[in-house]
């Protein structure tokens, strides 16, 4: 009976440890310093840029090869989902001081614009109007360039 109780305690302890470990690896902590906040902003911008680039590559390939609409709509939906998740996570982080508020505002604006553009692309793809995707490329490319510039700015200054 004693050893069974000990086994149950061991299993419970392992379950708690496992849950804690999974939480630690998944959660985004608050930002206590300006440089840490800029790092998180930079990560967000990088993630959103990746999503925008995914959409660009996907639309280019569709234009060149007439890819299957089902695949394109899922690809663009996934890209929007990634960008949106990154934007939401960053929006929930408390800026440590007033100077970081500016970083937050600039990042949120550009990231929000990117999420909207990806949503527009996803809507068009889900409707099956793949020919309407190609005209979206110039705007997406401009967004990708702006995201890259912002990332370089966040990376290089004000640590």
């Amino acid at each position: 009976m004693t050893s069974r109780r000990a086994s149950r305690r061991t299993v419970a302890a392992l379950a708690v440890a496992l849950t804690a470990m999974l939480a630690v690896t998944s959660c985004v902590g608050p930002s206590r310093t300006r440089s840490d906040f800029r790092r998180k902003a930079d990560t967000t911008v990088d993630n959103v840029r990746g999503a925008v680039q995914t959409a660009i590559l996907g639309i280019q390939a569709t234009d060149r090869h007439s890819l299957q609409a089902a695949y394109v709509s899922v690809l663009l939906g996934d890209a929007e989902e990634d960008a949106s998740a990154a934007a939401d996570t960053f929006a929930g982080i408390q800026p440590p001081d007033e100077r970081s508020d500016r970083v937050r505002a600039v990042t949120n604006e550009l990231v929000g614009e990117s999420v909207d553009a990806l949503a527009d692309a996803r809507i068009v793809a889900r409707r099956g109007d793949l020919a309407e995707l190609t005209p979206m490329l110039p705007h997406l490319r401009r967004l990708a360039r702006r995201l890259e510039r912002l990332s370089a700015d966040l990376d290089g200054v004000g640590r």
Binding site: N47, G50, G58, A61, H65, S66, D82
Partner: peptide
């Protein structure tokens, strides 16, 4: 294909993208 564009992979759809971009519809299928 993805590394030069700074794209990370979190979805199965992205795994197929290089094949789609290179070999088109048939390659994707």
């Amino acid at each position: 294909v993805l590394a030069p564009a700074g794209i990370g992979v979190d979805h199965l759809s992205q795994v197929a993208l290089p094949v789609a971009a290179t070999l088109g519809r048939l390659g994707l299928a």
